[in-house]
Design a binder for these strands. Structure first.
Length: 643
RNA sequence: GCUGGUGUAGCUCAGCUGGUAGAGCGGCGCAUUCGUAAUGCGUAGGUCGUAGGUUCAAAUCCUAUCACCAGCACCA
């Protein structure tokens, strides 16, 4: 007897092993038709698989959160089947479901063209209409290897060879197509429906390693309903409109050009924004007990050799090319070695620790051309960089203080949902296991104490210490590392930083490399995308534009501008002989937060008709009150004004 | 760096299989003084990313190169 417990607590008994499909059928035949899979003790399984022991189960039907990953994976298989039907010379490799869809990596000499995608998509609809049964098969390891080798599927054979001996080898068969796969899958291809679309082709390295050959990856998106697909495609279109590169141009913030690849030309308004961000973080750091320093841009390679950068980071460094045996200088890619130089000046005592040293230093890194991206990934950038020199015992408290500060700063910028990635010890590393234990625990404890949720990145730490990465998302869902905290036991050693302990002995300080915003360029890019250009008043380069309705109000408009400027507000004047609706439209496009329309009425009453960006209505306010409200909104760093 | 795609006026884009460039918006000029997301008329803008090549003739075909876009790798 097998007893299966349903989500509502009801128990159903069966004489012997029973398939998920039969379980569903025992409840109702219509349920069986509507099912995609069955969850057995928390594990999603094919309906065709037999359940052999007592278990709690749940039938997966339309709308269940497990449906999307399932049909996306089905869709990947259908795409592979379509590709092999159309292009038999293609080998299949790996094709998982991912956020919003799926991809499949193919090995083929000739790359797929956008035209091919149209054909493949058509073929996929055919296969789905055929409603092929998807069946799970358990294979013998060696037979499976032989089978795939005979089929010319070398990659599949390689995958099986690399699987642990204990792993059950399963294949999924649909029509003439058979694929090595862990599963699970829906019962048939018809379950996928029509709400999918192939999106793009791209190269991708076999097993994610750039030493390996490059495969052809096709990305697709797949949803349960057409409405969901349409909504997703619409979201992508909308996201395009908040691209910081586009908004940067439209809002006249910055530009980039060929002659300075990977570097930003900040325009007046963009630089105003930049300075607001920089001054804000400067104040926060200063209040948090940081000193600020400034170190050289060009530094002799000798120092980089000592610090280890010459060995580990040479490829990314810009250097001078001296004529003969002159010294080689390098543009600094990081501030840390220079900060150690300042630390080393004079002698330091334990009483000086923790010593928090900040610098808005300009760093240059020769990033690979393919990695550059607007102002998010550049070759010249400025970080809100700082190094905390402290004792091992101070790591926890300093990390905690840092996490709290970071959280508070992010909140001011309107980011409350912060993802933290914790990278622990890599295989190749410096320092003893004891120190690593200590550092890892410190970082973990401190960030948890600060109420941050951690994601673990196993083995991804720096060779000199573990790190926390604070990640923000851009308009289309790409993650960007902004803040970071890295514990470093190596650099103080290499550059011989010491302090005098209570006992009169010399000790090595630990260095915490840390940034909150990360690169200001990147952070501003994220800000622009996050707000779709509609920056909070405290960050907006221009606070308001005064628009006259007729030139009768020109004198009053100048008066208002004076009054607001006197309060430190940045206000522009639009006295052009244009219709008010024309001006409103133009300044709305330019993402000006407030439009003040002034006509005869306002001039007589000493008021302004105020319209907030994003709102259709307006309200009439006395100038003095308006100025006061604006100043308060800026001081309070209001993210979303309720108008 | 790798794979694919793109590069035509300030912006968005058209220009079929080769016959020396076109629209809308924006700019400028004139008129309009018009109360909350486009007033009308007129006008000026381009070595078609760059360098070679094929051809009587190249934005269009070929080669190289640069930049950008997407993805991969990288991101100390």
């Amino acid at each position: 007897m097998i007893a299966l417990t349903l989500p509502d607590g009801a128990v159903r008994e069966f004489d012997g092993p029973v398939s998920g499909f039969d379980v569903a059928k025992s409840i109702s035949s219509s349920l069986a038709k509507k099912s995609f899979a069955i969850i057995v003790n928390g594990e999603v399984r094919d309906l065709g698989r037999e359940i052999e022991t007592d278990a709690t189960i749940e039938i997966v039907t339309k709308g269940h959160e497990e449906v999307l990953p399932l049909i996306r994976h089905d869709c990947a298989h259908v795409m592979a089947e379509a590709v092999q039907e159309l292009y038999p010379d293609t080998q299949v490799t790996i094709g998982p479901s991912i956020e919003n869809g799926f991809y499949y990596d193919f090995a083929r000499k000739t790359p797929f063209t956008p035209d091919d995608l149209v054909k493949i998509e058509k073929k996929m609809h055919e296969i789905i209409n055929r409603n092929e049964k998807i069946e799970r098969e358990v294979w013998d390891r060696n037979e499976a290897i032989k089978f795939f080798l005979d089929k010319g599927e070398d990659y599949k054979a390689e995958i099986i060879r690399d699987l642990p001996e204990t792993e059950t080898i399963t294949c999924y068969r649909q029509g003439a197509f058979i694929d090595l796969c862990r599963g699970p899958h829906s019962p048939s291809t018809g379950k996928i429906g029509k709400a999918f679309k192939l999106m793009k082709v791209a190269g991708a390295y076999w097993r994610g390693n750039s030493d390996n050959e490059m495969l052809q990856r096709i990305y697709g998106t797949c949803w349960e309903t057409q409405e969901q697909l349409d909504a997703y495609l619409h979201m992508l279109e909308e996201a395009e409109k908040r691209d910081h590169r586009r908004l940067g141009r439209e809002m006249d913030l910055f530009h980039m050009q060929e002659e300075a690849q990977g570097s930003v030309f900040w325009h007046d308004k963009g630089w105003k924004l930049y300075r607001k961000v920089e001054n804000y973080i400067r104040d926060r750091l200063s209040n948090a007990g940081y000193q600020e320093v400034r170190t050289p841009q060009l530094v002799d390679r000798v120092l980089w050799e000592k610090s280890g950068h010459w060995e580990k980071f040479r490829e990314n460094m810009f250097t001078t090319a001296p004529d003969s045996d002159e010294k080689v200088l390098a543009l600094k890619p990081m501030n840390c070695p220079c900060h150690v130089q300042i630390f080393r000046m004079g002698s330091k005592s334990y009483r000086d620790l923790p010593l928090r040293m900040a610098e808005f230093g300009c760093c240059h890194r020769n990033e690979p051309s393919g990695g550059l991206h607007g102002i998010m990934r550049v070759r010249q950038f400025i970080q809100d960089d700082a190094h905390i020199f402290c004792t091992e015992d101070q790591i926890v408290s300093e990390t905690k203080i840092f996490c709290d500060l970071l959280k508070s700063v992010y909140k001011d910028f309107g980011f409350t949902d912060i993802v933290v990635k914790f990278s622990d010890r890599p295989e190749v590393r410096a320092g003893s296991d004891e120190i690593w234990d200590k550092a890892e625990n410190a970082l973990r404890e401190a960030s948890e104490a600060a109420g941050l949720k951690l994601e673990i990145n196993p083995g991804e730490g720096a060779f000199y210490g573990p790190k926390l990465e604070f990640v923000l998302r851009d308009a289309i869902g790409r993650d960007w590392q902004c803040g970071t905290l890295q514990a470093d036991f190596v650099l103080p050693e290499r550059l011989d930083a010491t302090y005098m302990g209570e006992d009169g002995e010399k000790y090595r300080p630990v260095m915490l490399h840390r940034a909150i915003l990360g690169s200001l360029e990147r952070f501003i890019g994220i800000l622009i995308e996050n707000y779709a250009g509609r920056l909070p008043l405290w960050l907006s380069p221009v606070h308001a534009v005064i628009c006259t309705i007729t030139n009768e109000a020109d004198d009053y408009a100048r008066e208002v501008k004076e009054a607001l400027a006197a309060k430190g507000l940045n206000v522009e004047l639009d006295l052009r002989n244009e219709k008010i609706s024309y001006k409103v439209r133009e300044h709305s496009h330019a993402k000006i937060p407030l439009i003040l329309a002034l006509g005869k009425r306002e001039a007589e009453e000493k008021t302004a008709s105020v319209r907030r960006l994003g709102f259709k209505h307006q309200k009439t306010v006395a100038i003095a009150d308006l100025a006061e409200d604006m100043v308060r909104e800026i001081q309070d760093r209001v993210i979303e004004a309720d108008f």
